[in-house]
């Protein structure tokens, strides 16, 4: 029986290497020399397969964070930073694929279906962090739940896009973008805006010069 991992790998491989678009699940299965029903045992469509790729990035990140003893001890802002650093380490192994899909992040108005489950998981994760932050007094109480959480998705999209365009060695600039933008985000909801805004603004200014 074919594994979901093999399906995902081959699908990515096809997207990145093959010039011909895949016409159907059947065509894909023929290439892999598997029965079509083996594909459907895992996924209902290419979209659900690709959704699983992104969900996989997210799950791997959370799994990796779970192995870090100090993660639990950090305040929520540091947890968020930890999440991003880990997440981009994982994305690094799949950079070609993410670059292939960069359009989805440069035009975030139209969210492709395959990103929706990933975004939902991310939002749930942020919700938990925000709740934890409110409880611990790190974040001011929100009059309307959820209002604060979308911006974090915007931040995620901003950072993925930034990383796609990052040509610095070891993607050091992405580290800087993570550090400064997360700081800004949290300062906005917990106090002093100005320093973080200037710090981040200056950083962005350098990127456009």
């Amino acid at each position: 029986m074919v594994t979901s991992q093999r399906l995902k790998n081959n699908y990515i491989n096809h997207l990145l290497v093959d010039p011909e678009p895949l016409r159907s699940v059947l065509a894909f299965c023929k290439k892999l020399k598997i029965k079509e029903e083996e594909f459907y045992a895992h996924y209902s469509s290419f979209e659900s397969l690709e959704a699983d790729i992104w969900q996989g990035f997210f799950d791997d990140t959370i799994k990796s964070l779970g192995k870090e003893e100090e993660y639990e001890m950090y305040p929520v802002r540091e947890k968020m930073l930890f999440f991003y650093y880990t997440f981009f380490e994982i994305l690094k192994n799949n950079r070609s694929y993410v670059l292939y899909r960069q359009d989805a992040f440069t035009k975030p108005q139209k969210t492709p279906g395959y990103l929706k489950p990933f975004y939902k998981s991310f939002k749930n994760y942020v919700n938990e962090l925000v709740d934890e932050g409110v409880e611990g007094g790190e974040i001011i109480k929100l009059p309307i739940q959820g209002q604060l959480k979308n911006p974090f998705l915007a931040q995620l999209i901003f950072l993925i896009n930034f990383w796609c365009n990052d040509t610095s060695k070891n993607f050091e600039k992405t580290d800087e973008a993570i550090e400064k933008s997360v700081r800004l985000g949290f300062e906005l909801i917990s106090g002093g805006v100005f320093d973080a805004a200037v710090d981040f603004g200056k950083f962005m200014f350098r990127q456009f010069r």
Binding site: I144, P151, A154, L188, V193, A197, G201, K202
Partner: peptide, 30 residues
């Protein structure tokens, strides 16, 4: 005017258009 609204509006817009808006907003925030 609300801090939260401002924050969320700023964050979502800010991250999209990047530095210029941040700079602009920073001035207003003062």
């Amino acid at each position: 005017a609300g801090k939260v609204k401002r924050a969320s509006k700023f964050l979502s817009t800010g991250f999209k258009v990047g530095g210029n808006y941040v700079k602009h907003y920073a001035k207003k925030a003062t």
